[in-house]
Amino acid sequence: MSARTILAAVLLLAAAPAGADDLFVPLPKGMDWDEVMKPDAMQFSLVAAGNRHVLVAWGQIAGGDSERFRMALDQARPIAEVWLDSPGGSLEEGLEMGRILRARKVTTRVPRGLHCISACNFAFMGGTVRYVEVGAEFGVHMFSSDAADRIRSHLVKPPETVTEYNMQFPQGQLDPDGVETYIAKYNAAHPDSPKTLSALLLDQALDEDTKAIQQGSAQTAAEIARYLTEMSLSLRFLTEFADIPNSAPRALSRQELRDFNVVNTD
């Protein structure tokens, strides 16, 4: 059965449950993107493809979804293909989903009209045979860091006391007496621009957040590089998209999909 024929069957069955097990749910009608975006965890739908099944994995990728994905694959046997339609989510879960797919030697596909963005990229890469159909979107951006969110939160509400600071940054404890001594000496030397306790604590918090971004980004880059090597993808996939913001992912062209070995068949 061709992918286009299976997709027609998927859309016809979208309004009806695909199976008796609670793990599988009906597909959004017509695979409407606004509906796909709504769930806060990945959803799984099952469609017959001859004497096998297509497992459609759609929605946000959240914590714990890789284990649910493993269960869905177990219950969906025998599998013809896994189709993906997702805006992304948890990088760690996406990487683990890809490793599960590779261990089982499953084919992955993003059918025409569907989307695979951000963390979904890495789940898709686990397929031994990988299709992105013409008219599908495979969207990429630079990986993001949770530490950036902490910087924003500290700018809005910096720690107000040394105790509060030490609770937020247990790895960089400050001595209250030492802080008071430092402020007194600083203000004596800079009477025209004295430093307050809150200003000092904000500076310290931003320093710690910056270190966390640097360390976290290096660790994430190394983890992605290892994964790309495991999946026989070009490491250029990690370096080519550094200027693409999280808020505006870019769809790869057909040529880029081939050049980076994202797809390995037409």
Rank of each mutant, 00 (worst) to 15 (best):
D259H: 05
A14T: 03
A136W: 00
E230I: 00
S247P: 01
L201N: 09
G19E: 03
T128H: 07
P159D: 02
L46G: 03
L206C: 04
V47C: 02
Q168M: 15
L206R: 09
T210Y: 13
W33P: 05
L238Q: 08
E35P: 04
D192P: 06
P39I: 01
D85V: 07
P249M: 06
A251L: 11
A48S: 12
R112L: 10
Q171I: 15
D32F: 08
F69Y: 06
D266H: 04
M1N: 10
D146C: 04
K211R: 13
A76L: 04
M167N: 15
A103C: 10
A20K: 12
N121M: 11
P17I: 02
E160R: 15
L233D: 01
G59E: 02
W58R: 07
A57N: 01
W58E: 01
R112G: 09
L252I: 03
D243C: 09
L55P: 02
S153W: 12
D259N: 08
K38Q: 14
T107C: 10
T161R: 03
R4G: 05
D207V: 15
D207F: 12
D74V: 08
D32G: 08
W83S: 01
V25H: 08
A14L: 01
A119D: 04
Q219A: 13
Y227S: 04
D40R: 11
F169K: 06
Q204A: 15
K211I: 14
Y131E: 13
D209K: 06
Q171Y: 04
D40I: 08
P194Q: 12
D22Y: 14
K38S: 02
R254M: 12
I79Q: 04
Q219G: 12
L46M: 10
A80W: 08
E256D: 06
V82W: 00
F69T: 00
Q173V: 14
L233Y: 01
V54R: 14
Y227R: 05
R70P: 08
P170D: 05
A41L: 12
G113W: 00
R258Q: 10
A14W: 01
L252R: 03
L233T: 05
M97G: 00
G126A: 01
S217N: 11
L252S: 02
P170H: 02
N264P: 05
G98S: 00
I61S: 02
E230A: 04
T5A: 15
P194W: 10
V106N: 01
L252C: 05
P191V: 07
S45Y: 00
S144K: 08
H190V: 14
S118A: 06
R236M: 11
P26F: 03
T161Q: 08
S253L: 07
A225L: 10
K157M: 13
G98L: 07
L197R: 13
